[in-house]
Simulated scan of single mutants.
Amino acid sequence: MTETALRTRSSIVVYALMLLCFVVLAERNLRYGFYELFFSSLVITTLAAAGIAATMIRRHRQLQTRSHPIILVLMTMVILQAIAREPALAIYWLYPMLMAAFLLLRFHQALILCLAGLLIGLVAMWHLPLWDQLSLAATALLLAGGAGWFARHYHASARYVDTLTIVDPETGAYNERSLNETLSRETSRSEATGHPLSLALLSIDHRDELTGVYGEDALSGLSAAISQSLRTTIRAGDSHYHLGNGRFFLLLPFTPEEGLRVTAERVRRLLDESQWPPVQSITASIGCTTRTTSETSVEALRERCERALEEAQRRGHDQVWHLSAADHSMLSTSRDSTSSRSSGSSISTSD
């Protein structure tokens, strides 16, 4: 489950509980003749239903949604109006609001909203006995403190859940799911701004033979060590991704072809010249490509990286091969013609 999905579910649950709570309050106020509180409860119930609808509509963008602060501020205003009319009864309406604010908003937003609501609520209760004011304030502060403590742990857990979905636990590099999302985003940004975007696909040479000699566990440690070296070698704005089986993908925004060639060669030399226990020495083949100004297909960029890597391996391994869009078209045409000639010779032989 991603952070977005977790926040979507929790937001729906919070709004549903708010809706249920104020439906009950509306029924009670109507039964006992508190009609102004009844209508205030209906307004908050409507806002809670609107919160559920907004959460469902923006379920894929929960981290950027702005509907929660607006809805909670409106709810707080309605509650404060109810407190001004019936302070002894409506002051308790702040309690579910305190919990909802800390679960739905960022911590500092929830803190500001809750403190403002409590201060205004206490001002509205000035004519009540001092003991009642102090007990209500203490109860509200204890509830707010507990909700705040829980919210901090909840938000930290939500971010940790999202981290688990995009980071490979074996190497600490980003995983393929993260690659697909980031590559799509960077391709769109490159198209909009015109800046260059380069990609590289790295594969450890002869990994199957190394696995047979040293075992899969040793190769897992090797992948983690390579990931750490890549992290310190590439620029701060670049990123690397582990695809499994000793394959890493490098994403280099704002990097033209010349810069890509320099970076890829530096990585190849680093792997070739370093010591990597327990295998001691390794080599790697790297396939590279750079996005052209008219390209929008993420799949085409990844396929070209695959073809470039295959070409580097075909030419003897331990080297960098850059494949442009034009070269890729020529290579595909050449392979198609070779395949046709092979098919023709096969047919003539059978004749």
Rank of each mutant, 00 (worst) to 15 (best):
Leu143Asp: 00
Thr182Lys: 07
Tyr160Gly: 00
Trp131Ile: 12
Thr165Phe: 02
Ser135Cys: 12
Arg189Ser: 05
Pro129Ile: 13
Pro196Leu: 09
Ala158Cys: 09
His153Trp: 04
Leu130His: 07
Val161Asp: 03
Leu164Ile: 06
Pro196Ile: 10
Tyr174Val: 02
Leu136Tyr: 11
Leu197Ile: 11
Leu134Ser: 01
Glu170Lys: 15
Leu197Gly: 11
Ser184His: 14
Thr193Glu: 15
Thr187Lys: 12
Asp162His: 14
Arg177Cys: 08
Arg159Asn: 05
Asn180Trp: 10
Pro196Thr: 06
Gln133Gly: 13
Leu183Trp: 01
Val167Trp: 08
Ile166Pro: 04
Ala192Asn: 13
Ala144Ile: 01
Ser135Ile: 14
Ser188Cys: 02
Leu130Tyr: 09
Thr163Met: 10
Phe150Met: 14
Asp162Ala: 13
Thr193Ser: 15
Thr171Asn: 10
Leu128Ala: 11
Gln133Ser: 11
Ala192Val: 10
His195Trp: 04
Glu181Val: 09
Trp131Ala: 13
Arg189Ala: 09
Ala158Leu: 07
Ser188Lys: 10
Glu176Phe: 13
Leu164Gly: 02
His195Arg: 13
Thr187Arg: 10
Pro129Cys: 14
Glu170Tyr: 08
Ser135Phe: 14
Thr163Arg: 11
Ala158Asp: 04
Leu136Lys: 11
Tyr154Gln: 06
Gly145Met: 03
Gln133Ile: 15
Leu183His: 01
Glu186Val: 04
Thr163Gln: 08
Glu191Leu: 03
Trp149Tyr: 11
Leu197His: 02
Asn180Phe: 10
Gly172Val: 06
Leu164Asn: 01
Gln133Leu: 15
Glu170Pro: 02
Pro169Trp: 12
Ser184Pro: 05
Ala144Glu: 02
Leu164Phe: 04
His155Thr: 03
Gly194Ser: 14
His195Val: 07
Asn175Phe: 12
Asp162Lys: 12
Gly172Gln: 01
Ala151Asp: 03
Ala158Gly: 01
Ala173Asp: 08
Thr193Tyr: 14
Ala140Phe: 03
Thr182Phe: 06
Leu128Phe: 07
Thr187Phe: 08
Leu164Cys: 05
Thr193Val: 10
Trp149Arg: 03
Leu164Ser: 00
Leu134Glu: 00
Leu141Met: 13
Glu181Ile: 08
His155Leu: 04
Thr193Asp: 15
Thr139Arg: 05
Glu170Gly: 12
Gly148Asn: 05
Gly194Glu: 15
Gly146Ala: 04
Ser157His: 12
Trp131Lys: 01
Leu141His: 00
His153Leu: 05
Ser190Gly: 14
Ala156Met: 01
Glu186Trp: 04
Leu141Asn: 00
Glu181Gly: 02
His127Lys: 06
Ser188Gly: 10
Ala138Arg: 04
Thr165Leu: 04
Thr139Asp: 03
Pro196His: 03
Ser198Gly: 13
Tyr154Ala: 06
Asn180Val: 12
Thr193Lys: 11
Glu186Ala: 05
Leu197Lys: 02
Glu170Cys: 08
Ala137Pro: 06
